[in-house]
Amino acid sequence: MAQNERLAELSAAGVAVWLDDLSRDRIRTGNLQSLVDEYSVVGVTTNPTIFAAAISGSDSYDDQVHALAVRSVSVEEALRTITASDVRDACDLLRPVADRQPGDGRVSLEVAPGLAHDTDATSAEAAHLWWLVDRPNLFIKIPATEAGLPAITETIAHGISVNVTLIFSLDRYRAVMDAYLSGLEKRVANGGSLEGIASVASFFVSRVDTEIDKRLDKLGADASLKGRAGVANAQLAYQAYEEVFSSNRWRALEAKGAAPQRPLWASTGVKNPEYSDTMYISELIAPGTVNTMPEKTMKAYADHGEPGTPVQKAYDEAAAVMKSVADAGVDLDDVFKVLEDEGVKKFVDSWDELTDSVKSELEKLK
C-alpha cells in the first residue's frame, strides 16, 4: 500500500519514524504491519507504562498468563516472559525492515526501572533480556542515570545494542555518547567485532517544556518563552551529536565498522493543547535521527504536519532561547535533575502497577 506522503517525506529527510507503543493486539490484528505499510514506521519503542496499559487493557494475554500460573512461576519471571514474547514477535515482524536498512527495524525492551541506580544489576538484566528475546534487531533500553552510564559501556562492549533512555540535559547527553564510544573501544580492545551493534540516545522533549513552562509561570516571566525550550534543548543536542560524531575518536571507530549512535527524539506527544500537535516533529527534522511517536501524534503529522526550520539552521536561535530561559530565573540544572528523578519514578510506578496486575492475574487463573 502507498505510504502517507508527509511521513514519507519525513523519512526521506533522514528521520526514522518509530512507533512509541506496543501491544499483543497491535501485532495480532495487523495494526502494526499496517503502520509499517502506510505510515513509514520502521521501529518500535516500549516502556513499563506502555506494557502496563497493554496487559491490563486486553484479554489477549490470558492464555499465556494461565500457562505461567499453572507452572507457579514468580511474578518477575512472568513479567519477563510476557513482555519478551511481545517484543520478540514485533522484532520478527520488523525483521524485513532491519534487513534492508540496518539500525532500523528495531524494537526496544527496557530493563526493570527499579535497577536504574544499580550498575551491575542493570548490566546483568540487559544481558539476560538480550538472551531471552534472542533477536538481532532488539534494543535493550537503559536509563541515562549516573549508574546507567557504565552499564551502557559494559553492555555495548558485550555486543548488545542499546537504546539509552531518559536523557534531558546536554551534559548528560555528552556523557551518554562517551559511554557508547567507550563501549565500542572496549569491545575492539577485547578482540570483538562491531558488526551489528547499534544504539540510539533518547533525548526527551515535551517533558522539558512542561517543567520549564511551569517554572516560567511561577516566575512571571515573558510568556513568549513558553513552549520553546524543549525543541531548543533538542536542537542543541543535535549540534553536540554532530561534533562528537565527526571527531577523530569517532572516525577511528567508524573505520573499524562502528555505526553512529543516532539521536532519538522521545516524549514527542504534545502535552499542552495550546501548542501545535506536531511541533516536536516539525521542528526536529535532521539527517540520521529517529522520532518515536505515539500513534495519535504520528497520524496528526500524517494529516497536517509541515516541516519547520531544519535543525542545523537553528543552533543560534536555540542557544538564545536557552539563555533567555536561564536569564528569566529558571535553574536548568535543577530542571533536568527533577525530570530524571520523575522519569525513573514514573516508570517504577508503572512497573509496580504492572507487577500487581500480573500477580492478581496469576492468582486468578491458577
Results as ranks from 00 to 15, higher is better:
D86V: 05
A112M: 12
N137H: 07
D92T: 14
C91K: 08
A144H: 03
A98F: 11
A124D: 04
L115S: 01
E76K: 14
D120W: 02
R88P: 09
R88F: 06
A179N: 04
K141V: 01
C91Q: 06
V75A: 12
W130N: 13
E76N: 14
G105W: 05
L166V: 10
A126K: 10
G183E: 02
V176T: 00
L79N: 12
I160P: 00
D99V: 05
G105F: 04
L170R: 15
H117V: 01
L181C: 08
G148T: 07
P113N: 11
E77V: 11
R187Y: 00
A189F: 07
I167K: 10
I152S: 00
V164N: 05
V75W: 08
K141T: 01
S169D: 06
R80M: 14
H128L: 15
S85P: 03
D89V: 08
G183Q: 03
R80D: 15
R106H: 09
F139R: 00
A116T: 12
T153W: 03
S108L: 13
G159P: 09
L149G: 08
T119N: 01
D86W: 12
I140T: 06
V162F: 00
D171N: 14
T145H: 03
R174W: 03
S108D: 05
N163R: 04
A121I: 06
T83Q: 12
H128R: 15
Y180L: 10
H128C: 12
V97L: 09
D178C: 05
L129N: 00
W131S: 15
S72N: 13
S182K: 10
A151C: 04
R95E: 12
D104A: 11
S161V: 13
C91W: 10
D120V: 15
F139A: 02
I142P: 05
A144G: 05
A144R: 03
T145G: 04
L184S: 03
R174F: 11
R95K: 13
R80E: 15
E76A: 15
K186D: 14
D120Q: 15
P113H: 07
A98H: 13
L109M: 04
T153D: 06
L132Y: 14
S182I: 01
H158C: 01
P102L: 09
E77R: 06
G114P: 07
R80Y: 04
L132T: 13
Y173L: 13
S182D: 15
P143N: 10
N190V: 10
A179Q: 04
A112Y: 00
V97R: 04
R71F: 00
V111F: 05
P150E: 01
A127P: 04
L129T: 02
G183V: 05
L138M: 09
L68R: 01
D99T: 09
V188L: 14
I142D: 08
